[in-house]
Design a protein around this nucleic acid. Structure first.
Length: 573
RNA sequence: GGCAGCGUAGCUCAGUGGUAGAGCAGGGGAAUCAUAAUCCCUUGGUCGGGGGUUCAAAUCCCUCCGCUGCUACCA
């Protein structure tokens, strides 16, 4: 059986994610995972919260709670929102887990043993008032180039020049405002990325045809600019401590850089999953390690900001262990979705976040819209008018109304049972032939991770059903040829049944409601692989149906106006 | 500054050498089962500007303009 491993870039634990975060990683990963399960593949879908890094430490401090407590709280919130969005992870882990700590230590030891890590002394900003080293971006001061007085230590926002905290005039702590910034020596571990350039280049060259241009161009850009060795430890309290047996204990009290342990958490979370279900070590290792994992196809989903970490640093780490860990096979990167012409912003609370999205509409509305307009070839733009137009036309009018008109007619004229009279003729054969093509195309697009095109094809399938029922016109035939009307409605009901199957990866709840109009559905609604002539002729005549209530309520102009007001935006960023 | 992506119909986007496309919006018609939902026909573009290669360019090359992103301690 085909084995498919799916990971989505792990979201930072701090706060509720916005729709931009969702559309580039978690949502497409879930649509694909559901599709794979529907096709009967052996599928493992993994995500987690990324719980390390200076911003998280500082956010906890701001809330006046311990970092552990902060992470517990927001992990639970994100898990709950994921569940409510229908994200069907096999496991939603935590990068702070003991499993990830053990694996991170393992990776570091293997890299150390292979001579691919080295200790270097770096100059770091330190504030005695804060009692801590400050990451570059947490030192602010006056830009030496343009005089902007709130330049960050890593870059001046005003003139965009890249800076070093040492360059700043009148430097101060962004945490406390303290001015006692001094530069101290600090020792850190560096990953000798420069040793991997040729290997990485060859590996990436092998994927120019199955990765998006976006991904290979970002990866090659990093290689072309020359890979610098990268610091993989930080002077922080919260994180995975560097074990004493590395570098003779010189790094006591330091933790690994968040981007060192975060990708390892894909593996860590898989071990968490195995442990939680008492499956034993082989259960997780067979997905990731050695010969048993060779038949696994590994898919990663992420926004473009994550691409360098997944095409350069993490692969270098894996290659550097010299151990047979799985490298990604298919890397799907996404651009950004903008909100009313500006950026989504977590800190600026601009845009639409997962919790408020669910307050106003069910998850499936968002799932459909976001995948149908996924930012695959370039950034895309969310506007309330466009959103309402798509939902109303595609979901309410084309799909929802089809289900409604067919089931209502069946109740009114055929006693709410699948009619038995008549036999399929030329029109039905032609429809089956068309749907054979279209369903195959839809399937191919999903296999190819072309979500926007896939959903366009799904929509075309719904349109084909409306065209058929118009040609078939059972409401006309009913008056003098009941058998002819029965054929149209029987096919109509079979089409509704088909829609329940086809929509499930994208809209699991709506798909279930549609399927329920015909009959109960299994937990995983399987993919309709058989010829349409068979699939669309399988409902038992005489079987009772359950006409649903309105499946998709239309969005009114008043709602659009209300939401625009409530969620701000309107072009300002 | 450097690099990358993008620029095609009013809007959102397909289209990598061979007669400019889809959906939505707009216009006309049909139908009346249905959430006034559907179906058919249709208006609409010198493919960001300019130059070049070619029998042929939205597509390849050069150049300019615009938007967006990245630029390694924000993930």
């Amino acid at each position: 059986m085909k084995r498919v491993l799916i990971t989505s870039a792990i979201p930072s634990v701090n706060g509720v994610k916005h729709l931009g975060n969702l559309v580039g990683s978690m949502l497409p990963a879930d649509v694909f995972a559901r599709f794979c399960r529907a096709r009967g593949y052996d599928t493992l879908s993994i995500c987690a919260t990324d719980e390390h890094g200076a911003p998280i430490e500082l956010a906890a401090a701001e809330d006046g709670i311990a970092v552990k407590e902060y992470c517990d709280k927001w992990h639970a919130v994100q898990k709950d929102l994921g569940d409510r969005f229908g994200l069907s992870w096999d496991h939603f882990g935590r990068s702070s887990s003991p499993q990830n700590r053990a694996l991170t230590e393992h990776f570091a030891r293997a890299l150390w043993k292979n001579g691919l890590l080295e200790v270097r002394t770096t100059k770091q900003a330190y504030s005695a008032t804060d009692g801590r080293f400050l990451p570059d971006r947490y030192v602010i001061g006056t830009c030496p180039h343009c005089g902007y007085d709130r330049a960050r230590g890593d870059q001046c926002e005003n003139c965009t020049r890249v800076l070093d905290p040492i360059d700043l005039i009148d430097p101060r702590s962004a945490v406390s405002g303290a001015r006692d910034i001094e530069i101290r020596d600090s020792q850190h571990l560096f990953l000798k990325q420069s040793k991997f350039v040729d290997k990485l280049r060859a590996w990436i060259a092998g994927h120019v045809h199955d990765w998006p241009v976006l991904v290979t161009s970002i990866a090659n850009k990093w290689l072309d600019e020359g890979l610098q060795d990268r610091g993989i430890t930080r002077d922080l309290e919260w994180g995975i401590p560097v074990p004493d047996d590395i570098a003779g204990g010189q790094l006591k009290g330091k933790v690994f850089y968040v981007w060192f342990d975060a990708p390892i958490e894909y593996i860590g979370a898989t071990k968490e999953w195995a442990d939680k279900n008492s499956l034993g070590d082989d259960a997780w290792r067979d997905w990731w390690y050695g010969d048993k994992a060779k038949d696994v196809t590994y898919f990663e989903f992420m926004g473009k900001d994550n691409v360098p970490f997944h095409t350069i640093i993490f692969p270098a780490m894996i290659m550097g262990t010299g151990e047979p860990w799985k490298l990604v096979d298919r890397l799907k990167g996404f651009n950004y979705i903008n909100y009313d012409g500006g950026k989504f912003s977590t800190s600026g609370k601009r845009g639409l976040f997962m919790d408020s999205a669910l307050e106003i509409l069910p998850a499936d509305y968002w799932r459909y819209y976001l995948m149908a307009n996924a930012p695959e070839s370039s950034d895309s733009n969310f506007t309330w008018e466009h959103f309402a137009g798509v939902i109303n036309k595609d979901l309410a009018d084309v799909l929802g109304n089809f289900v409604n008109r067919v089931t209502k007619f069946c109740v009114a004229r055929f006693d709410g049972k699948v009619p038995s009279e008549g036999v399929y003729g030329e029109d039905e054969n032609a429809l089956c032939a068309e749907l054979d093509r279209r369903v195959a195309q839809y399937t191919d697009y999903l296999e190819a991770l072309e979500f926007r095109k896939a959903l366009g094809e799904l929509r075309a399938i719904w349109v084909a059903a409306n065209e058929y029922i118009t040609r078939s016109a059972p409401w006309t035939h009913f008056k003098n040829d009941r058998a002819q009307a029965a054929v149209g409605i029987r096919m109509g009901l079979n089409l509704v049944h088909l829609f329940g199957h086809l929509a499930w990866p994208v809209m699991p709840n709506a798909a279930r409601a549609i399927h329920h109009a015909i009959q109960d559905s299994p937990p995983v609604i399987p993919w309709p692989d058989e010829p349409m002539k068979e699939f669309l002729d399988q409902l038992e005549p005489g079987q009772a149906i359950n006409p649903p209530d309105v499946l998709f309520a239309k969005i009114t102009d008043e709602q659009v106006a209300d939401w625009q007001l409530r969620f701000g935006g309107m072009g300002e960023s």
